[in-house]
Design a protein around this nucleic acid. Structure first.
Lengths: 145, 145
DNA sequence: TTGATAACCTATCGAAATGGTAGTATAATA
DNA sequence: TATTATACTACCATTTCGATAGGTTATCAA
């Protein structure tokens, strides 16, 4: 398993913000409740999102979070790489200063590189907006039925 | 990180067998030494490979392991799904009796399904033989230089 | 038939990651 | 200045990872 709750919760939080922020800020309490995620746990994930400048914050009354950019300007790769640290399928690819001694003639390394590429390209091909669109399409269908 | 040492070591073991088995069996001691992997640890991984009928075994003098089929008849997906248990990128996809309550209108589930598909299709598109071929090509180039 | 060889099985273990809970401090606003 | 809400830090239980260790069983050669 590659994508932990950190990344999945972060993604759901950002989708929740996209849906509910309007012109203001969304209190974490509300997002946490809607998404059924521990608020305290989300509090720990958010600093990472802030480090990558993915959110805007205000404290105090009417405070909360909102997206720093438009939903179409976030790829899932952006969000998941930030929160998961890396999407590399093997440790050998996690850092640039690759310490694996076998690297030079490792028969399997090209395979992992290819897998890494496939994963990142897939996730960079989907934006938050894409998910919002599919969601409204799905909800629309419910009414038709 | 998605593919642990279990899967990577299993893959390297099977490549080693492919290269060295000839008409006989390869002692684990020898594979372990060549690949610089703990023999004792490999011993624990092998039962899984046997459960999926990926190897042939003989005990005692001149005993060891060999591949059950031709290298072209193993995909990396076969080997890695066996040893890793699952290649699913999220827990939600690991079992068929999916216990996630949000499943029905989860906005992100289609994304994980797509990612899962991309990963499995990539790994099922590569056989042991493909890696052997690339390896000999690479070694060939070394002599040319 | 006995000794060598090599696979098989099970228990244990330290370190790290996972998925949280809890409490306090700080900022913003009414 | 009380309220609202984020920010920060510490802690914790459980599971997974990556082994090590030791004894058991099967096979074959001499």
């Amino acid at each position: 398993m590659m994508i932990s709750t950190r990344g999945r919760y972060a993604l759901r939080l950002m989708l929740d913000l996209a849906e509910y922020q309007g012109n203001g800020y969304v209190a974490l309490k509300d997002s946490a409740q809607r998404q059924d995620i521990s608020k305290k746990y989300l509090e720990q994930i958010i600093p990472t999102l802030n480090r990558f400048d993915l959110l805007r914050t205000t404290r105090g009354y009417q405070g909360g979070y909102r997206l720093a950019r438009a939903p179409k300007d976030y790829t899932l790769g952006d969000i998941l790489r930030a929160t998961e640290g890396s999407l590399a399928p093997v440790t050998c690819l996690e850092t640039d200063d690759n310490p694996c001694a076998r690297q030079a003639d490792c028969a399997t390394l090209p395979v992992w590189r290819g897998l890494n590429k496939v994963i990142n390209e897939y996730l960079d091909g989907i934006t938050l907006q894409d998910i919002l669109d599919q969601q409204t399409a799905r909800r629309g269908n419910d009414y038709v039925i």
